[in-house]
Nucleic acid binder design. Structure first.
Lengths: 337, 337
DNA sequence: AGATTCTATGCAAACGAATGCATTGGATAT
DNA sequence: ATATCCAATGCATTCGTTTGCATAGAATCT
């Protein structure tokens, strides 16, 4: 279709030079005289010459596109990470190709295929919740394509990763809750296969131990969506010994938790404290506003992209697996004492 | 770096055929005998042959990547549109390259360059708020690259577009407000240069006229961010004749409006009704929940991608400009009577 | 002046796939 | 038996760049 772009050969012909000379002149190759260089570059500028990246990449076998696989685009945290990836990639003149798995294993496989087909030189991935097998990720590695996981890492495969310090985030949050007098702190988590949930539970338990509070099984639930929140939380509030705090796996659950708690007549934070995880849009518009653990998604995106690009360009030379931790930050608002 | 992929030539050598035969066999070219076809395709499958898209595109000069320019990725509406674009593009085996202008004119120019450099065959764009000149968009057209605007269209350039029916959305919302008895309905809009804001104001005014309510200048403000909301709204509430409804340009402003209104002691919706625009995450977690106009971002993404791909493939043959309207939907919740 | 070096350039072959145009061998027609 | 045709395959070129190597002419050395 579009064929209006001018090529090296066109320039060469116009200037009575060979394509190789033009190529070198454009790249400031010292073998080319200053005059010709100027001549060529001026001509190129004037005629808006754009090198054909396809041809370039075909020839040099190096490609400046990286692929990203996220479970969902319409999601505060992931879109924040995407923004970070985009920022860093752009700085390094990489393009990013984005795929969405929709939390679906089959779709995730298709994403991998799409990205490998596109010959990306590296992939940043966050695993879908439903993924239990890893052959598709293994295929990436087998094809010598760099792979870095972020946030939802894949435990079945040994490769670089960037994760939020979930343990520490949970620890700080629950420590804070306990230090303000909460004794029966509930943990609303996710599938315990997911490291992010598991690590937070460990942080949660550590904090409890630190405060000499017993870990009670019935206060730990798998509850990571709006639907589950609206089903599970009212039940928990009906039991004899109601929680006096909820530490939630994400802001959404925390927000619906807030509603459920208020609906039953408890005051927040006087009777029950609530803390979320993400620190996204929602935190400022709930009533009361929501205390939450910030995951620094933008920074995570930058870090992950940085690491991937360093791998691609051979600047990160560590032989084994590189793991980076992104620090969390507890942001206090009015849903906690 | 990555050179492990197997090529047509490799297959040819292994099977003692020529590359052209292999190429044709892979494409089910009838000139090739059934046996050879099977032979080749089985071999290819077994060795996970992936055609090199770069080479293919270089040769055929058609490229299946489309670029997208959005003002912000971390934004409910735009991320929804992105998801729609992604879904449609994937269905048609197109890849999408995403750029973010950050509402910055200079950055937007850079986005265009990046996408043209990448030789995308089409671009979907939503203009940044700060853009007042259009040379960069013109360059897209000049290079014979297809261009479709969505949502924030560029008035300075004559090309296909997909927009929300802002006029009708505003009309429906304000009509509803008036029909529930609101008499002094404020409009919190955006820069009047932006068609989306202007069209909504017109819808707003039409609704008022329909209900024989006078349009009052002081009830129309430019207020499209959290910061402005927190500054402007309290002032409006302090005036003698306070509004009894706010129709806001987005959910965010509506949510902060809600807070400001309640802070002064008004009840929502009894004293003052509030209506947002977007119908995103926020609407369910405010108190009361927020009535809002749904923009059907996902559908917009699909429609825009569809149109662009049809243009690229020559299936949309209309000579002039194609404009598509996405219908809105008023979603009633508890912030309106 | 002849040999050597350097400077600036061009030639040609890649990269991987697609494709118009041969070419081959066998089958059919005459 | 020869001419004709078709089916199946190969050759060679092309897309736009890059790059090792060759080469031309000028400059320097001896």
């Amino acid at each position: 279709m579009s064929k209006q772009y001018i090529t090296l050969k066109d320039i060469a012909k116009a200037l009575n030079l060979s394509a190789s000379t033009v190529s070198r002149a454009m790249k400031n190759n010292p073998a080319i005289s200053a005059e010709t260089r100027e001549l060529v570059q001026n001509f190129a500028r004037k005629h808006k010459y754009k090198p054909n990246i396809l041809a370039m990449q075909l020839r040099t076998k190096r490609n400046t596109t990286i692929g990203v696989i996220v479970p969902e685009i319409v999601h505060y945290f992931f879109s924040t990470v995407l923004a970070g990836i985009q920022a860093e990639a752009e700085k390094e003149n990489y393009n990013i190709l984005i795929c969405q798995s929709n939390e679906d294993y089959k779709k995730e496989i298709k994403c991998v295929q799409t990205l490998l087909d596109a010959r990306v030189s590296g992939i940043l991935a966050s695993q879908s919740k439903t993924t239990k097998e890893y052959d598709h990720f293994q295929e990436i590695v087998d094809n010598n394509v760099q792979l870095v996981f972020f946030d939802r890492i894949c435990t079945g495969i040994n490769t670089d990763k960037v994760v939020v310090d979930d343990y520490e985030g949970a620890l700080k949050a629950v420590d804070y809750l306990a230090s303000t007098g909460c004794k029966r702190i509930a943990f609303l988590g996710s599938d315990s296969d997911l490291p992010i949930s598991n690590n937070r539970r460990m942080g949660y338990e550590s904090a409890l131990r630190k405060h000499k509070i017993k870990v009670i099984k019935s206060l730990i639930k798998e509850c990571d969506t709006r639907e589950l929140a609206q089903k599970i939380i009212p039940d928990m509030l009906n039991e004899s010994n109601t929680p006096d705090a909820f530490f939630c796996i994400n802001d959404e659950v925390a927000a619906y938790c807030l509603q459920a708690v208020k609906a039953v007549g408890f005051r927040v934070p006087e009777d029950i404290s609530i803390c979320g995880f993400t620190n996204g849009y929602l935190t400022e518009v709930t009533e009361p506003t929501l205390t939450s653990v910030d995951q620094h998604g933008f920074e995570m995106g930058i870090t992950a992209a940085r690491l991937l690009i360093d791998r691609i360009e051979g600047k990160e030379t560590k032989k084994g697996v590189v793991s980076k931790l992104i620090k969390t930050e507890l942001v206090l608002r009015n849903s906690t004492r």
